[in-house]
Design a protein around this nucleic acid. Structure first.
Lengths: 205, 205, 205, 205
DNA sequence: TATGAATGAGCTTTCATTCAT
DNA sequence: GATGAATGAAAGCTCATTCAT
C-alpha cells in the first residue's frame, strides 16, 4: 500500500520542502543521475524512510520539482508584465521582458537543461514541458496580437515560437556560460533583433 | 588490464563503428542512462568482452560518439557554404544557412539534447561542447566580418552569439516537436529576423 | 517501552477486535506476508500508534489471531456433538460430523493454510497448531473408544489420526477449490469410507 | 533489458542447479519469507549477481523450484506403478501405492506445505499446483476405472478426490510430525480404509 | 582474439517499530 | 491516551567491468 503522506501539519510541509530543496541543489551540481536518494535525504537532514513517505519514488519527486520549478520560471518572466505598455510596446518594453527571461534562467540553468534532456526518453517529463511551452508561447502570441496594428508579421504563431525560442535559449546559454559573456550586449542584440523584426519587418514575399 | 585496441584492420574498424551506431540508436530511443552496455553489445552483435576491448569504458564510448556527432553536425551546416555569396550575403543566403542548421539538427535532436545536458555535471563533455560552440560562433562571426560594410551592428561577437543561439535552438526545438510545427514558417521568420537585424538594424543608442 | 495494554473497558475490547478482524480479512486476501501493519491499522480505523498499544508486535497479533481462529474452528466442529448418538454411532452421525468439519473450514481456508505453513519455520505457531491437533485427535479417539464394541479397528489412535487427517484435508481442499467441486458427493464418499472402515473393517492380518 | 541467462555450458547448468539446491534447503529450514536472495547466493557459493543472471527474480526461482519439486513428487509416487496388478488391485497393491506417497512426502514436507499455502495469495503458484492436482487425481481415477468391475463406488471422480486427499495429507502430516508417529500403523489404517471403501463399499442409498 | 560467466558495490524501496507532540 | 512523523535496517535487484576459458 504505502500511501504517500500528504503533509498537513506545518512540520510536514517544512520537511517536504527541505527534501525538494536538497534535491534541487544536488541535481544541479552532480546531475540527476549522479545523485541518489540517500544523498538527498542526508542533505535534507531526514531519514531515507521519511523521503519515501513524502514521495512515492524518485520519479515522482522529479516531476513535482519540475512543476514547481517551471511555475517559478513562468512567474519570474511574466509577473513584471504590468510594467509594460501592453498594446503599444516599444524597444524598452521588449528589453525589459528579455531581462526578465534572463533573470528567470538564473534560477537554475543546470536543472533546466537536465530535465529538458529527459523529454526524449521520458514521456511524463515531456508532457510537463510541453504544457509549459504552450503556456509561454500563448503568452507571447497574445502580446503580439495586442500590438498587431503596428506590426507587419504575417504569422503571429510562428513569430511567437521563434521569439520564444530565441530569447529563452540565448538566455539559457548565457547563464550557463556564465560571467564570461557580456550579458548586456546579448540583451541589446536580442532586443534589436526582435524589435526590428516586429516593427520594421517586411512582409514575406 | 587488457589494453584498449586501436583498430587498424578494416574489420576492426567496422566493428567499432557498429558498436557506436548501436549505442547511438539506443541512446536516442531509451536515453543514455536507460541503456546498459550489454544492450549495446547485443545490438551491435558483439560480445560484452569485445565491447570492452574497443572502449576503455562507457564514458570513453560516449566521448568518442560525441566528437563524431559534433563533426557530422558541423559539416552538415558548413559544407554547403560554398554556395553562399560570402561577402555580399542576402536574405536568400541567410535562409540557406538556416536550412542547413535545421537539417543538421535532424541527425539526432535526442542525442544532442541529452549530451548537452550532461555538460553541467560532466566537465569532459562540457569541454567537447565548448570547443564546438566556439568553432561555430567563430564561423558566424567571420561571416559577419566579411559583410561588415553593409551592417550596422556594433558588437559582432555578441551578434554572432545571439544568432547562433537563436538559430540552433529554434532548429532544435522544431525538430523535437516534430511534424506538428510548420517548419517553413519558422525558417522564414528566423530569416526575416536575422536579415532585418543585420542589414536594417539601427545602431544601438 | 510502552507496555501493551490489556483492554478491560468495552471500548478497548472492541478496538482490539476490530484490529484482529481487519488483519484477518487482509491476511486471507493478500497473504500474511503481503500485508503490512499500516494497512491493518488503516482498515481497522485506528492509528498505527494504537495498533502497537494493543499488540506488542505483529507476531503477537498473529498468535492471538491463531488461537482465536482455532477455537472457533474447534467449536464449529464439536459444538453440535450433542446431537450425535455418542456410543452407537451410525453412518448418519458420521456424515453429520463431516458436515460440521466442512462448515468449520468455510471460516477461512486461506488463513488456515497460511498459518499452517508457518509451522515449519516458526516454532511458536507450530506449538499452537500441535496443541490443537492433539485436542482434535483426542476428541475423535474418545468417540472411537465409546463405540469400540462395534468396531474391529486394532489401533484406535492410528485410526483417529487417519480419520482426522482425511476429513480435515478433504474439507480444506474442497473449500479451497470452491464451488466447482460437488461437495455433497465428497461428503458421501468420505462418510462411506469411514463408516465401512470402522464398522466393517477387517482386522489387519 | 537484463536478459536471463539460459545456461548451455555445463558450468552454467551446474551453477543454476547449485542455486536451486541451496534455495531448497534454506526455504525448508528458515521459511521462504525468512530467506533472502543474498543468503541463497552465499549458500550456493555464487555472487548475488550470478543469482540474478540465472533467475529474473525471486519469484521465478520459486516457480522453477516448484515445477521441479512437483515433478519429482509425481515420479516418486507413480514410477513404481509397474509393480502393481493394475486391473485387479488388492490390498497389497493399495498399500504399496500408499507407501510410495509417504516416500514422496519425505522429499520435503516443509517446502510442500509452504508453497501450498502461497496458493491463496499467489495465482501463479496456484496454477502450478492445480495442474499437478488434476494430474494426480486423473491418475487415481483411471486406476479406479480399470478396477470398476470389482467396485461398488458410484462416483469415481469423487472417490478419486477423496482418496487422493486422504492419502496425500495423512502422509504429509505424518512426515511433518516426524518419528513420533507410528508410520506403519497409519499406512495400515489407510490401506484398510481405502480397500474396504472400494471393494466392500455399499452403494449409497 | 573472442566470449560470456562471474563479480559485488551500490541503488531504490519497504516496513516494523518508536516516540515527540 | 491517541496520533502519525520519523527512523533505519534490510531486502530486491542492476550493471559496469573483469578474467578464466
Amino acid at each position: 500500500m504505502t500511501a504517500v503522506r500528504t503533509p498537513k501539519q506545518p512540520r510536514s510541509i517544512q520537511t517536504k520542502k527541505r527534501i525538494m530543496r536538497a534535491a534541487f541543489h544536488l541535481y544541479a551540481h552532480k546531475g540527476i543521475h549522479g545523485t541518489n536518494s540517500r544523498e538527498i535525504a542526508q542533505k535534507a537532514g531526514v531519514s531515507i524512510g521519511s523521503f519515501y513517505s513524502y514521495f512515492k519514488n524518485k520519479k515522482t519527486l522529479l516531476l513535482e520539482m519540475l512543476e514547481d520549478y517551471l511555475n517559478r520560471h513562468f512567474l519570474a518572466i511574466w509577473k513584471p508584465i504590468e510594467k509594460i505598455t501592453i498594446n503599444n510596446m516599444g524597444r524598452a518594453d521588449i528589453r525589459w521582458l528579455i531581462e526578465s527571461v534572463f533573470a528567470a534562467y538564473g534560477i537554475s540553468p543546470e536543472f533546466h537543461s537536465q530535465t529538458h534532456a529527459l523529454r526524449y526518453s521520458d514521456p511524463d517529463i515531456n508532457q510537463v514541458y510541453e504544457r509549459e511551452r504552450t503556456r509561454e508561447v500563448t503568452q507571447i502570441q497574445s502580446l503580439l496580437e495586442s500590438n498587431r496594428h503596428r506590426m507587419r508579421i504575417s504569422d503571429p504563431e510562428a513569430a511567437a515560437i521563434v521569439i520564444h525560442n530565441a530569447v529563452e535559449n540565448v538566455a539559457h546559454t548565457a547563464k550557463f556560460i556564465g560571467p564570461k559573456t557580456d550579458e548586456k550586449a546579448l540583451i541589446d542584440a536580442l532586443a534589436d533583433m526582435i524589435y526590428d523584426f516586429l516593427i520594421f519587418g517586411r512582409q514575406p514575399e
